[in-house]
Structure formats: structure tokens, C-alpha cells
């Protein structure tokens, strides 16, 4: 039951990277609406970025997610305003099921970042130059390890450590293992009832 649900701490994420370039990549691109006609999230992974990855005859197109060298990647490196548009949680769910555990980008749409947090996936940010450098590095070194230290707000790769930003609330939630809000909030039953009673319309 919720009261004893163990919420894992997410202090670090390590693994290899995959660059997905472009600003304003919206959730319709991440998971086209036609694949949302499902009642569970299982199996969504293979449809991630489907229309970017396949043509009308389902032939693979040029996309990093189609490349063998990136198949084991778990850190996605993206540009600005990633995940804008529809609030569908199917988007991070699909990417998580494809294998992604964390994102590094210039900026993220707010609802997308919130949805990621609810799954325990960090969305850390850095300036354009840092991101582009990292994307180039990942492109050339698909097997190189990238370490995201959520607590220290750094990313280490290729022997160097760069500063990144993790939204404060997100950092605390991940590092302290308090990102599962259902469990957190369920504990406040008494206060919930009191708030409701104070509202004239309830």
C-alpha cells in the first residue's frame, strides 16, 4: 500500500548518450497521437518518434534512434523547449520504455519536465554551447559514459565535468527519493479534509 511504498532515490544517472537535435520538439513528434489509442503504456517504446524514424511504408529514415550505435543509450541530449505541446505523459513513458533514464537539454517544456519527474527521470539543463558540445561528443563517441550527478548538478564525460542546472524542486525530490507524490500526499489525510471543509463550494 502507498504508505510503505519505497520511492527510490535518483542521485545519479550514468550511461551512454543519444543526441536528438532540434528546438521545439513537441510531444506529437515524440509519440504521434495515433499511438495513444491504448489503455496501458506498455509497448509504447517502439513508437517513440515514429514519424521521424519511419516513412509511409515503414522504412527506417535517418534518425539517431534508428542507429545501431545508439540502441543502448539511456541519456538523451536535446535542445530547447523539448517536449512542448500536448501534456501527454505518453511522451516520457514512450522514451522511458525505449530505454531513456534521463535528459540533458537547453530547456524543457514544463509539463513534460513534470511528467518526467513523476517517473523519476531527471531533466537537467545547460546553455546552448554546452549542449551542442555534448551532442557532438556523443555523436562521435556513442559508447562513452556520461555521468549525471543530480545532487551536485554536474555532468561528467570525456574526463571533464561541466555544470548543469537541475530545478531545485526536482533535485530535492529525486535526491531525497520523494518524487512519488501519491505516497507523499496520501499521508496528509487530516489536512486534506480540513482544507476541503474550508471551501464554500465543496
Amino acid at each position: 500500500m502507498s504508505d510503505d511504498v519505497e520511492i527510490p532515490e535518483v542521485k545519479e544517472v550514468s550511461g551512454t548518450g543519444i543526441p536528438v537535435r532540434g528546438n521545439d520538439i513537441d510531444t506529437d513528434q515524440i509519440i504521434p497521437a495515433r499511438f495513444m489509442k491504448v489503455v496501458t503504456f506498455d509497448g509504447l517504446g517502439e513508437f517513440s518518434f515514429f514519424d521521424q524514424r519511419f516513412d509511409d511504408e515503414d522504412n527506417p529514415k535517418d534518425h539517431p534512434m534508428n542507429e545501431d550505435r545508439f540502441q543502448d543509450a539511456n541519456v538523451m541530449v536535446v535542445n530547447a523547449n523539448f517536449g512542448c505541446g500536448s501534456s501527454r505523459e505518453h511522451a516520457p513513458q514512450a522514451l522511458m520504455r525505449w530505454g531513456i533514464d534521463a535528459f540533458i537539454g537547453e530547456s524543457f517544456a514544463e509539463i513534460f519536465a513534470g511528467n518526467c519527474l513523476a517517473l523519476g527521470m531527471p531533466t537537467v539543463t545547460a546553455d546552448q554551447e554546452t549542449i551542442e558540445d555534448l551532442q557532438d561528443f556523443v555523436d562521435e563517441n556513442p559508447d562513452a559514459e556520461i555521468d549525471i550527478d543530480v545532487a551536485a548538478e554536474t555532468v561528467t564525460y570525456d574526463g571533464t565535468t561541466v555544470d548543469v542546472t537541475v530545478d531545485e524542486g526536482q533535485r530535492k525530490a529525486l535526491v531525497d527519493g520523494i518524487w512519488d507524490t501519491t505516497a507523499l500526499m496520501k499521508a496528509n489525510q487530516q489536512a486534506i479534509s480540513e482544507t476541503a471543509e474550508g471551501l464554500p463550494y465543496v
Partner: peptide, 13 residues
């Protein structure tokens, strides 16, 4: 998002 829907269903908060 869906996880928040779960929150609201479970706690109305």
C-alpha cells in the same frame, strides 16, 4: 499528466 491523475484520483489533491 497521468501520474498526477493518479494523485488526484487517490487523494483529490
Amino acid at each position: 499528466g497521468t501520474s498526477q491523475i493518479r494523485d488526484v484520483l487517490a487523494t483529490q489533491t
